[in-house]
Amino acid sequence: MSIQRIVDRILVGVILLALWQLTSLWIGFYWVSSPLQVAQRMVAWLSDGTLFTESGYTIGSALIGFTLGAVPGAVIPFLLRRRPVLAAILDPYLVAGYATPKLALTPLLIVWFGIGIWSKVALVASISFFLIFFNTQAGVRGISPQLIRMAEILGARETKVARLVVWPAALPYILAGVRVSLPFSISGTAIAEMLSANHGLGYLIQASAVSFDPTGSFTAIITLTAILTIVNILVNRSERRIFNWRPAAAAFGRPKGALG
């Protein structure tokens, strides 16, 4: 990236922050807070540990829920691969489960699991299960039957076919599911925390807002944004590392071999 580009980008950021500061002078800190106040609050909440504790609740619930949903979501399509009848029977229920707006379940989940982390865990598990399941299933179903046939002719039995052919072929799809559902798990947790909780970044946003403290809400929102950005970067990095075997995206037609 050229230096000019970096300078331009910083300039846009500064202008946006200046506009925010001006707006708050104009309309009042009471409503929109201001960059300076948010920065002060950020320092205060970082030094007293508030942000670490509350982020810990949000990230913790999200990760537990994600794992509980993603693992079966990635495994079940493999089990269903050789059981087309069972897969066909379950299909409409899975599609319905996918279509259900999971956030709408939050009030019920809070009734069932309480306002602590477990209602958030349950919500996130239900979100990530279906996202990962359908992605993995697309990968498992999309695999070339010729590759499987080739492995069988070479003497591969069912478990070897699953481990050495189907799994690596489905992995890009599974990771595509992770890329969507992992950030969604975190934001989903935060939304559930806004509805009812006594911890977490979502709770902090909500609690600050209702006590007329927009500075607190903005501080928590910015923290949440930072966490999601980092998660996105990490997921993209690991994806690139895992798929170093793939041709760099070919712009036109079939990728031509380097020695082609």
Binding site: W245, P247, G257
Partner: peptide, 8 residues
């Protein structure tokens, strides 16, 4: 080399 890097 990976297959995509090689000629037919």
């Amino acid at each position: 080399y990976h297959p995509h890097e090689l000629s037919g």
